[in-house]
């Protein structure tokens, strides 16, 4: 599956789950997904400068009735930890975190970030699911949103290269 098709499938899943505000920070592997988010008229897209501010934006939007998701690399998840702890967990605010799994098995870069991603999520008590099949994405997103709302906690979906599809050549981006 191409990255464009995967992006369309994932954004379709977000909308089925009721998500209507998405904060993002780019990673090259997220390029098509972010473009699909930006192009969707039903989603309010907020491009960030640093991921931690996005946790605050989503918390504020949740408090007034929005359903939010944050899309970032695992490096950005590490950047966001104080806000996740002292805002999301402290106030019991749900949020879907889509974390690109840099340093995943088979990746040639960021192996240290990859090795820390799941342990940090476990330490925070944030439940997470590793997404490998694009066709499973919509159902997983729907269930993750139900869990986040029911538990009133963040839930993470780890975006692997497989689930994001085959990326187009850089020059075409």
């Amino acid at each position: 599956m191409s990255a464009d098709e995967a992006a369309t499938t994932i954004v379709g899943g977000l909308k089925q789950a009721g998500i209507n505000l998405v904060v993002t920070l780019p990673d090259i592997n997220l390029a098509q997904l972010l473009r699909a988010v930006e192009d969707d008229p039903d989603i309010l897209h907020v491009p960030l400068c640093r991921e931690e501010e996005g946790i605050g934006i989503c918390a504020g939007a949740y408090l007034v009735g929005k359903k939010c998701a944050a899309i970032m690399q695992n490096g950005g998840f590490f950047n966001s930890n104080n806000a996740i702890v002292s805002t999301l967990l402290q106030y019991q605010i749900p949020l879907l975190l889509f974390i690109y799994y840099a340093g995943d098995i088979g990746d040639r870069t960021f192996s240290t970030s990859g090795s820390m991603t799941e342990p940090v999520l476990q330490a925070l008590g944030v439940r997470y699911y590793v997404m490998r099949e694009t066709s499973d994405a919509p159902e997983l997103i729907k269930r993750a949103q139900i869990l986040a709302e029911d538990a009133k906690r963040p839930v993470a979906l780890l975006l692997t290269k497989e689930v994001l599809g085959r990326r187009a050549a850089l020059k075409s981006l």
């Binding site: 907020v46 931690e52 501010e53 605050g56 934006i57 939007a61 408090l63 007034v64 805002t87 402290q90």
Partner: peptide
């Protein structure tokens, strides 16, 4: 009134509210 506990996040939480409730 909403009290922020994460130092720095006040402006971002307010932005999220402003975007979520543009009439208020």
């Amino acid at each position: 009134n909403f009290r922020v506990r994460t130092l720095g996040l006040c402006s971002s939480i307010a932005l999220g509210m402003a975007l979520g409730l543009p009439q208020r």
